[in-house]
Design a binder for these strands. Structure first.
Lengths: 385, 385
DNA sequence: CTGTTAGCGCCTTCAG
DNA sequence: CTGAAGGCGCTAACAG
């Protein structure tokens, strides 16, 4: 009863051989309808759940693809912390979360898998932990690695020769993998063009550490474009910004008092931009009147911030979908050569750059704007409302 | 080079036996430091990735837990479709998504797995497809099933005797599984109390099909509580609401013209509530002036809708976390008896019930309200800003 | 059409 | 401390 039954049990019960049982599942056309039914019935009665491991081992594939990240993927969301109301009515017990950049990638990945009926294994690997990485890789037919991975380079390279690998947010490489990246350069150019041409910005600071390919590209592109307008770009250190809110306030205080405090602050991502805006506000500075702030990524929270964040939007979901699709289509076959795909970015004008928007986004716009919104809602529970 | 190397290759290269290699990985204390290093080096040089399947087969565990849903999990999000601006400035290329109820559950599940360094397999199963279900189960040591599953009852029951199973949004059952549900009754009571006592509602309609344990409970609780106040509850059919927006408009039109059109509409979930509000608005009705609308779940979109949605909030993330944690702690061992856990709900007052809020939620509140928001942001990229 | 059998890659006693 | 060997549950030839 409690014991798990195996293929042998099924064969025994059905009075056939194991080969036949296997055929009944995978090559039903090879056996008689009659015996097939016998087998299926037996399996059902025994509550037979085939072992995925044994299957995989025998057939040489795991039948699953992976999305691994070495850092904080799936992790800390952007909290929305409700304050208890002045009249005491509202006191929400659970904090809501805004999906971030990697969440969107992940979501796209999942959507694609779901639509293709693919199993997906998600794993967050402790950064730099060689063994866990090596371990996990053996569990999937192909894997997408999210930016931030820094295990042994040679290992990654070898992996690319053994199975299909997608490198997300990575520039063109010499690995036999598919690297997918967004067009940071075009996005940055568009951003600076807007700041300069529309808002007459003459000096900007780039905020954020250069610790990923994206951040490098963004910084470099900004420097590059700045030459064209002959404007200055500083890159002030954030110091202990991330240590605590007090530390961030301290850093911000020194920053605003510098005589080269800029007209515009280009943050390396939306999270930083949002927290920077918040801290500025706590210091009594207004945005965009006192300082213009922009971000990168286009996360949902930025559309509901006040002021609405001007940012360089990335097709994060599309990125995730593309990764999954590519992996699935390779069916375990590694790329024989380096591949590269550049996804477009798009400048999204908010209010934090000084533009005025007609109104705050509201759910009114949802339906009014596009019926597909409605269609998407109704899908969820199989039209059962 | 391209061939995947196995344990044998490593043994050969290290000049030891396969058993020793295995020991080097799993029982290093049993072998000499010296030979261990030899093995590890060999493995590294060969870029040896152990087969998860073989490991699992030999050790009898998959080392992963699953989150399965039989329907639309991970699926259609609530789109935010940006309209291109009147001044033509904004034309956002990608639609953003609001996470829904199941997304929050999933997120909690993932967070818990990540924190515990657990691999997680996600799979959306075609509803009622017995085989794919049976297939997928063999890939994990334990599984959480999201509401909406309707495969062979006996199969589920048998599964519960073989591995740990968590049933989400399911009432107490006789299965040897852990069922987790939210307190719909208390939530509904609180909701109706508020509507009656604060807004003097005398008649309400319950909107939504009764096709899940939660929906039944909500409806029943509403009926029950209504007795106490001696008010009437209708349950109008939504007809082809989900078919298209035109159909929904048509349904809504007949509904508003009924002479028993109620003061308040209690929708079975937030999505329905949001789309109902949208459709009402398209028909020229105001909310809450013309009709009060409420939902269930407490999804993020409802906090940014206009008017802000009054709803019965569920601790969805906590539910996901609890499921994952329970599964991990069982380590493949099935529950020997039915278990049940009831999670609390909380009435969240918005504006759609007629209450007035001091202000629209804005990102200002984020920091002002709670420093933990800041802390949560900074975590993301390992403090590297 | 069905049965037989040899692995798949690894782990784990059990000898040595 | 290390090597040898059986077996985990299933698939896929290959016979019959």
């Amino acid at each position: 009863m409690v014991g798990k039954s195996t293929l042998y049990d099924v064969a025994l019960k059905a009075g056939v051989s194991t080969g036949t049982v296997s055929h009944a599942f995978h090559h039903p056309e090879l056996i008689k309808e009659d015996t097939k039914m016998k087998v299926l019935d037996a399996a059902r009665e025994l509550h037979y759940f085939p072992s995925g491991n044994a299957r995989g081992l025998a057939s040489g594939k795991t039948n699953a693809i992976g999305l691994f990240s070495f850092d904080m993927l799936i992790s800390s969301p952007l909290w929305y912390v409700p304050k208890s109301n002045s009249d005491g009515v509202v006191e929400e017990p659970e904090i809501s979360t805004f999906p971030l950049y990697v969440d969107e990638i992940e979501h796209g990945f999942e959507l694609e898998c779901k639509e293709r009926d693919q199993a997906l294994v998600l794993q967050a690997l402790p950064n730099g932990k060689y063994e866990s990485f090596v371990d996990s890789v053996g569990r999937v037919d192909g894997v997408a690695l999210v930016e931030g991975f820094k295990p042994d380079i040679a290992t990654i390279k070898a992996l690319c020769d053994q199975r299909p690998v997608v490198l997300l947010s990575e520039p063109k490489s010499s690995y036999n993998a598919l690297s997918i990246q967004v067009d940071n350069v075009a996005g940055t150019y568009a951003l600076l063009d807007h700041l300069v041409l529309t808002h007459h910005v003459r000096d900007v600071a780039f905020l954020g550490t250069l610790d990923s390919p994206d951040s490098y590209e963004r910084y470099n592109a900004l420097m590059e474009r700045a030459k064209r307008y002959d404007i200055s770009v500083t890159h002030p250190s954030l110091g202990k910004w991330g240590a605590s809110i007090d530390q961030a306030m301290a850093e911000a205080r020194t920053f605003v008092e510098r005589e080269d405090f800029p007209q515009a602050v280009v943050c390396v991502n939306d999270q930083l931009a949002l927290s920077f805006m918040a801290v500025m506000r706590m210091l009594g500075r207004r945005i965009p009147e006192d300082v213009i702030v922009t971000g990168y990524d286009g996360i949902l929270a930025g559309r509901f911030s006040s002021p609405k964040l001007t940012t360089v939007l990335q097709p994060s979901q599309a990125m995730g979908r593309l990764a999954a699709r590519s992996l699935i289509e390779r069916r375990g076959k590694p790329w024989g050569e380096p591949k590269f795909k550049l996804l477009p970015t798009k400048l999204v004008i908010g209010e934090s750059c000084g533009c005025r928007r007609p109104s705050r986004p509201s759910m009114d716009r949802l339906v009014a704007a596009d019926v597909s919104w409605f269609d998407s809602i109704k899908m969820r529970r199989g039209h059962n409302w």
